[in-house]
């Protein structure tokens, strides 16, 4: 669905995006993670033909971008860095104007399309108030409705849950999963780990303009070589596993061990009751922290 090769963008002397080889496959739920200022938004803008690359190639839905971007854009629903709407008009009017601005879609169905999109994002009941009076979360939902107007094959969403409350975030996540189930590929960028963790199947991590990780989420969560053991008699287990226990909290021990099976057998053989046993895996947070260097909005004292 999206392939980039050596994609690079310079703004003056700063390199915003540096040699990115992005690969999003059909049906993916792809989450692009990275600290603020790591180049996520610039990358998204290049995919949509808003920003022109300094070097490299982009292919979206099989067409070269930006050369033939106008052929693919009608099948893409996108949200780029916050929603945009005319503040003096109502949400419905905004969507209708937005719908009318582009090609395709007959005038007769416009009302229906707008109503359906509003329904999907949970704004079915909005009145004639101007967008100026909307809360940030409502604007965000309106932006999503705009992206869904033409039932896109590919959703490109930059920080889609910005400004939403926990319930709203959950709703949007369910909506995106539902759309993905209906066949749409979802590509979203976020700096919220939990959001990507809960929704995405594939993850890319950006750091200072470079794509440093790109893999299936499950493959990234490699075992850490530790096993969590739950037991009502931690003292006995401690005595048995002397030196291999890294952490001890109440009835739970973190044990350095490669194979939970043999560890279990060892414990049971020694007469230790085991109530819980789990392989510890790297969290997404650990993956991201390992891959990235420093937060871009952190400013160190100069030397």
């Amino acid at each position: 669905m999206i392939t980039t090769r050596d994609l690079t963008k310079r703004f003056g002397r700063t390199v915003a995006v540096d040699g990115v080889d992005l690969h999003v496959r059909e049906g993916d739920r792809y989450g692009l993670l990275g600290p603020n200022g790591s180049g996520k938004t610039t990358l998204v803008r290049m995919l949509l033909g808003l920003v022109f690359a300094t070097r490299g190639e982009i292919e979206v839905l099989g067409q070269p971008v930006p050369k033939r971007v106008r052929e693919v854009l009608p099948s893409i629903g996108a949200m780029v860095e916050g929603p945009g709407a005319y503040p003096n008009l109502s949400g419905r009017t905004n969507l209708a104007l937005f719908d009318a601005a582009g090609p395709g879609g007959s005038r007769r169905d416009r009302r229906k399309r707008v109503d359906e999109a509003l329904e999907r994002v949970g704004l079915a009941g909005i009145d004639r108030r101007p967008v100026r009076a909307y809360s940030l979360g409502m604007r965000q939902r309106l932006g999503l409705a705009g992206a869904l107007l033409r039932t896109p094959r590919l959703l490109i969403l930059d920080e889609p849950t910005n400004g939403l409350d926990p319930r709203g975030i959950r709703e949007i996540r369910d909506l995106l999963a539902e759309l993905n189930g209906e066949g749409a590929t979802v590509f979203l960028s976020s700096h919220l780990l939990a959001e990507v963790d809960a929704l995405c199947t594939r993850v890319g991590v950006m750091d200072r303009g470079r794509l440093v990780v790109q893999d299936e989420l499950d493959d990234l969560r490699t075992p850490t070589g530790r096993v969590t053991v739950g037991t009502p008699t931690p003292e006995r287990a401690l005595a048995l596993l002397d030196g291999r226990v890294e952490n001890h909290q109440g009835q739970f021990l973190t044990v350095r061990h490669d194979d939970p099976g043999t560890l279990n057998a060892e414990l049971v053989a020694a007469g230790v009751t085991v109530t819980a046993l789990a392989v510890e895996r790297r969290t997404l947070e650990q993956v991201v922290l390992d891959a990235t260097t420093t937060s871009a909005d952190r400013v160190e004292a100069g030397r």
Binding site: G49, V69, L73, G84, A85, Y86, F98, A101, G102
Partner: peptide
């Protein structure tokens, strides 16, 4: 500045 320019362009409007 209202952010609508980028949405018009990806609508797409030439």
């Amino acid at each position: 500045s209202t952010g609508t320019l980028r949405y018009l362009l990806i609508r797409p409007v030439g």
